[in-house]
Simulated scan of single mutants.
Amino acid sequence: MAAATRYGILIKGGTFLEQGRLLTWLALDKTGTITHGKPCQTDFVEIGNMGDYRTTALAASIAARSDHPVSRAIAEKAVENKIELLGVDDFAAIPGQGVCGVIGGQKWYLGNHRMVEELKKCSTTLEERIFALEKMGKTVVALVGEKGVQGLFAVADTLKDSSIEAIRELKKLGVKTMMLTGDNEHTALAIAEQVGVDSFKGNLLPEDKLRVIEELEKAGGKVGMVGDGINDAPALAKANIGFAMAGGGTDTAIETADVALMDDDLRKIPRFIGLSKSTYAILVQNIVFALGVKALFFALTFMGLATMWMAVFADVGAALVVVANGLRAMRK
């Protein structure tokens, strides 16, 4: 555990270190885990007739009240374009869909495709525009008012180079990977293909992520979960080993997880698994050695060949050898 700490891996108990070598599945959140979690707005499509400025001002005003990376990207783009933000009342977050608020006495929604469908404001033409952007690996959110969808905002995130390398190393260790995200299927597919995970699931709510972890555990083997947000907390708690991205993660995720990665580098997970295997090997060596020495001493005792010095070595001496052997893990 001390060796892991030197590499920025904080393990909350020896049990989790021992279980690391047994991982068969690792589920990973997308935003902030596989990707940088700092998306930028790339496209704006006006649907209504309010004008670009008004539509963007409404969306950015609501987005500025949210701490979700996609919302922040829309708000930052508006500030960059020197668009004045408006006052928002009754702001609320809708899990798995988006956010809403009242501006000038009218309620506005800013959310994903699922939210548009829930509000019954979807159409075939609108879906074609949304899907065209999603197939490019972009996340699309819509500004919805009483008269329907007024604008689409496309946001793109970038993969961490370390994520691709980490997935490759996990495969070599025999660990299967699954990406879990609240994003639509098109965006999820594009990211999954780029990073090289074994499978993926999109359009997930927090409870859906929890259900996926439960299903993987029922299939057998140890299951790990990597996440950084509040929405990941239930899945992190349910997994056999929960990994939190501590660098940019929420306090809830860090407190819930069993292992914290201090600089959000997924390559630390293969290192954690390797350290777990090394630790297990040392444990087996120590147990076999300690029991072997004592068994030999007992045999010599019954033969009448044991001495006091032999007894000291079988007890204190064996303990010192075991400790010295265990310290080798510091160099792993």
Rank of each mutant, 00 (worst) to 15 (best):
G326P: 01
G182Y: 03
L143H: 04
T125A: 14
K30W: 09
E169A: 09
V212H: 01
M303E: 11
V45M: 06
E217T: 07
Q285R: 06
A314T: 10
L180R: 03
I273V: 10
L28C: 12
C100I: 00
F153A: 09
V155F: 12
G326I: 01
I213E: 05
A78L: 06
F16E: 14
A57T: 02
R65Y: 11
A63K: 02
F272S: 01
I287P: 00
T256I: 11
P39E: 15
M225H: 10
V284N: 04
K160N: 07
G151W: 00
V259P: 01
V223S: 10
A64R: 02
I62Y: 02
A192Q: 07
G111W: 01
A75D: 07
D157K: 01
A306P: 00
G202A: 07
N49W: 00
M308I: 15
P270E: 14
F131Y: 08
V195M: 09
K172Q: 13
T125Y: 11
G137D: 15
R114F: 03
T33H: 08
V312D: 11
R271K: 04
G14R: 03
K332W: 11
K294F: 15
A93Q: 05
F153L: 13
T256P: 04
N81H: 06
T56D: 02
L23V: 11
L189I: 08
M1R: 05
D43L: 08
G37I: 05
K209L: 06
H113D: 12
L296S: 15
L320G: 11
M310A: 12
F131T: 13
F16T: 09
A319K: 02
V45T: 13
D208Q: 07
G174Q: 02
L261C: 06
L266Y: 05
D29H: 03
G145E: 10
F16P: 01
E84M: 10
A260Y: 05
A306F: 09
T279E: 13
L58S: 05
A329M: 08
Y280Q: 03
K30E: 14
A75T: 04
L23Y: 06
L26N: 13
G174K: 01
E193I: 11
G20C: 02
D198I: 07
D67L: 00
K172Y: 05
T181M: 03
A233K: 05
L22F: 04
D52R: 12
A59Y: 00
M225V: 14
A281P: 00
